[in-house]
Each structure stands twice: as structure tokens, then as C-alpha cells.
């Protein structure tokens, strides 16, 4: 799961102080992933080292505003356009990614949903093939079924996200 990508998404509309990033991160992700301020600053300084963000002048209280760089924008776009790999994944990254895609301006959320849907379906197909050729008996089959149900639940949730987003768009237009 990627704190730095979440921070990049939050910095994409305008520069932010570290403490603002922490508050907005928790607000966007529904506090499923609490951050402490130390993590925020550690991540920001690593991102500065990597050229993804740049600090502004210190204000009179010693606080520093951070802004996203061109390289940072490119990295954020890469994150949003890349599906999360099913293998060993910190499951919540998809949830965070969707929350951030909705929060950050200018992200094609429908595209993020569809990219993930196709990747998750490919996983589901692979699991189904494995199940067809499984010779290991009931235990192996049930383990595969468990993974199939997880992938299926994710597909349903993505369908739901899309329906909610479509309803919101229609509501905003009328």
C-alpha cells in the first residue's frame, strides 16, 4: 500500500502543509488507514529526495508547504493507470486508490475502475482454470474457491462504485 501515491494525489490540486495532508488523507480514506504526522514527514522527505515533490519557503511558524513536481504528477498518473497486482497484495490499496481517484481533480475514475475490473477478471479466469485442472481434492478446490469469491466480491464492488458514480454524475447534472 502506498502512502506516497496517496500524498501525490492530495498534492495534485494545490500545495499543502504536512499536517493538512495527514487530515485530508484520513478524510479521503474514511480513516481506514490512520497516519501519524511522522510518517507524513518521513514520506515527504523521501519524495523530495526522489524529485516527486518540492518544498516552499518556511513560514514564520516554521511550517513548510509542499508542491508536486512534474515527475510527481507523472508518477501519480502511472499509479492510477496501473492495476494492483492480485498476488500478495495489501488488499486495501485498491480502496485507497479509488478514494483518491474520486478526491483528486481530473482523474478519470471510470477508467481506473475499468482497468482494475479487467485485471481482476483476468485473475478470476486464471483461478477458474486452476480449479478445472486441480487434482488435489476438496481442500485445494475450496482454497481456490475462496480466492474466486474474493475476486468476485471485488468485481461486484467495482460495479457498485461505477453505479454510485454514475448516479452522482446524473444528480449533479439535473
Amino acid at each position: 500500500m502506498s502512502i506516497r501515491h496517496g500524498l501525490l494525489a492530495l498534492l495534485s490540486p494545490e500545495p499543502r502543509y504536512g499536517y493538512q495532508l495527514r487530515t485530508e488523507f484520513e478524510a479521503s480514506t474514511g480513516a481506514t488507514w490512520p497516519l501519524n504526522i511522522g510518517q507524513v514527514y518521513t514520506t515527504l522527505s523521501r519524495m523530495e529526495r526522489d524529485g516527486l515533490v518540492s518544498p516552499g519557503e518556511e513560514d514564520d511558524q516554521g511550517r513548510v508547504v509542499y508542491m508536486i513536481t512534474e515527475a510527481g504528477r507523472a508518477e501519480m498518473e502511472r499509479w492510477f493507470s496501473t492495476p494492483v497486482a492480485q498476488a500478495d497484495r495489501p488488499r486495501d490499496e485498491l480502496v485507497i486508490k479509488l478514494a483518491m481517484a474520486v478526491t483528486a481533480p481530473g482523474v478519470d475514475v471510470g477508467r481506473v475502475v475499468q482497468t482494475q475490473r479487467t485485471a481482476t477478471m483476468a485473475t478470476l479466469q486464471e483461478l477458474t482454470r486452476a480449479k478445472r485442472s486441480a487434482a488435489g481434492g476438496t481442500a485445494q478446490r475450496l482454497v481456490l474457491d475462496s480466492k474466486i469469491f474474493q475476486a468476485e466480491a471485488e468485481q461486484r464492488w467495482l460495479d457498485h462504485c461505477e453505479a454510485v458514480l454514475a448516479a452522482n454524475t446524473e444528480g449533479a447534472q439535473s
Binding site: L124, Q125, A151, Q155, R156
Partner: peptide, 10 residues
């Protein structure tokens, strides 16, 4: 989705 997953192509 669970039935679509039997396909070669979705």
C-alpha cells in the same frame, strides 16, 4: 463474474 471467468475471453 464467477461464470464469465470460465471464458477464454471476457
Amino acid at each position: 463474474p464467477r461464470y464469465a471467468a470460465w471464458a477464454d475471453r471476457v
